[in-house]
Design a protein around this nucleic acid. Structure first.
Length: 475
RNA sequence: GGGACUGUGGGGUAGCUUGGUCCAUCCUUCGGGGUUCGGGACUCCGAGACGCCAGUUCAAAUCUGGCCAGUCCCA
């Protein structure tokens, strides 16, 4: 097994090598940007989905599923949206040999699939708020280089869509979504910033967009998800109206919340290290791997102890894997570390005799668990592992940012930068050119740095109405 | 959209300039046997590739053309 490229010096090479070596995805499928979900990768993805489902249902969303194909006539109703997606959708233009009168779009996202139906579902203020989500595949014809999980053409997409009585209710929903994401991110151990995108970079058709960005080393960031406030931009063209308490007809205000397998890419990118992937317990395909260490004469006792441990942990609801394969123990350690399993339990002649197991977490912290108290000992170790994981990520997160006072400081930056910005688009583009990246936007909720207000716009120098903005190189 | 580059077993590579030494090198992987097993074991046997289609030639992994796929840069 070859060593991995250096994460800091060759991040992309490292990332691709980990995804491949940990067997999270098989990218040899012969269509660009469409990769195969392997058994191990799919286990991780399903864990992510479950966390998303738990948190979105906790704020009152219900699961639905809309069809994959959208008639062009519906797709084209909201002009900005169409303009934004026109160049990157797949078209179905034939049914068998017959050209279709109305071509069909493979959904790049589902606004235009859902909203004609929302107009039928929403009649009265009693129908509001309407909050539904679906986890489905969407398709975008990416022309840039695709990367597993991070930039793909077939996207495993979580999308919540809501209809609200007015702007204020929709704004509250945006913040409910942000809090729901905060809970998900806590499970994933992912520190991030919620940034309101500048107008030129918002979602096509949105009134405004709040993106969830995570620094992943150097000046680079990864966008993990987005929450959009549409106001009446879609409800107008799609006729989503309700009769208010006072008898008048009103357009709903809408929001959406989107996440994808990028979260998995983010988890690999942020937690991974020189030994490979590192999964937080909530996401780990296997929380525990049990490795028996055979010894001459003690084989049956060792195997019996390993089996007992595996079965008891499984009965306790743990995702556990017994690796009894015919390899040297060391080879197994390396592989399961590469695959990011949080905790390894080793059982050899000594442990079997003492009714214990040696526990080593993914960071190398070593200890002993007793079979008497196996379930609770393992739970304690996993909690400690998760705490370490979070602290490491949080420490790196804080070290990822630096302020900049001049445009020159942005060039060849080794950090994500926060700068004073007057809000003017021209200044924003100057900042983007200077960092050779993007102005990600202004903090929507918290700003994690101890810092006063910015003195002046880094581009034009004005001192009035200046706010902090974050500039980086999104991948 | 414009340009440059690259396609060799499952993965990574040597060979390509100057056609023949190549029924293709090495590492890894995979299957089988044996000895092993407390941090990537050893050994024996075996499996597996020149992106596709034409052309030039006595002879093509190597040269030419087209196609397909991929990567990077620029708009």
């Amino acid at each position: 097994m070859a060593d991995l490229p250096d994460k800091d010096a060759a991040f992309i090479d490292w990332y691709l090598a980990v995804v491949e070596a940990a067997d999270l995805s098989d990218k040899r499928y012969p269509v660009k940007g469409m990769n195969i979900w392997t058994a191990y990768g799919l286990r991780a993805r399903r864990r992510l989905d479950q966390v998303m489902i738990r948190e979105i249902e906790a704020i009152g969303s219900e699961a639905v599923e809309f069809p994959t194909l959208i008639p062009e006539t519906d797709f084209a109703k909201e002009k900005e949206h169409v303009k934004g997606f026109d160049a990157q959708v797949y078209w179905v233009t034939r049914g068998g040999l017959t050209p279709l009168d109305v071509p069909l779009v493979l959904r790049p996202t589902s606004e235009t699939a859902m909203y004609p139906t929302f107009a039928l579902w929403v009649r009265s203020h009693k129908d509001l708020p309407l909050a539904v989500y679906q986890i489905v595949n969407t398709f975008r014809y990416e022309t840039k280089t695709t990367r597993p999980f991070v930039r793909v053409r077939e996207i495993h997409f979580f999308e919540e869509h809501t209809c609200q009585v007015d702007d204020a209710a929709a704004t509250r929903r945006v913040h409910e979504n942000l809090r729901a994401f905060a809970k998900m991110a806590a499970d994933f151990g992912l520190p991030y910033l919620a940034l309101r995108r500048p107008d030129w970079d918002k979602f096509a058709g949105a009134a405004y967009s709040v993106a969830l960005d995570a620094p992943i080393g150097g000046p680079r960031t990864l966008q993990l998800g987005t929450v959009h406030h549409y106001r009446e931009n879609f409800s107008g063209p799609y006729g989503i109206r309700y009769e208010a308490v006072d008898g008048t007809q009103k357009l709903v205000h809408q929001t959406t919340f989107g996440l994808s397998e990028r979260l998995l890419g983010g988890i690999v990118a942020i937690h991974g290290d020189a030994k490979g992937a590192v999964f937080p317990v909530a996401v780990a395909p296997f929380e525990v791997v049990v490795v028996p260490i055979p010894a001459a004469g003690a084989g049956p006792a060792v195997n019996a102890a390993a089996s007992e441990i595996t079965e008891r942990l499984r009965a306790a609801g743990r995702r556990v894997r017994l690796d009894a394969g015919d390899e040297r123990p060391g080879a197994k350690y390396y592989r399961w570390e590469l695959k990011g399993v949080p905790l390894r339990l080793e059982v050899g002649r000594r442990e079997a005799a003492e009714r214990t197991a040696t526990a080593v977490d993914r960071f190398g912290a070593k200890g002993t668990v007793r079979l008497d108290s196996l379930e609770s000992d393992v739970a304690t170790r996993l909690d400690e592992f998760d705490r370490t994981l979070r602290e490491r990520a949080e420490t790196r997160f804080r070290a990822s940012f630096a302020p900049a006072a001049t445009l020159a400081e942005l060039a060849h930056s080794d950090r994500v930068r926060y700068v004073g910005w007057c809000g003017a688009e021209a200044c924003g583009h100057e900042i983007e050119r200077a960092i050779d990246g993007a102005l990600l936007g202004t903090p929507e909720e918290r700003f994690p740095f101890e810092t006063g207000p910015p003195a002046r716009c880094i581009a034009c120098g004005v001192e009035r109405d200046v706010r902090w903005a974050v500039a980086a190189q999104p991948i």
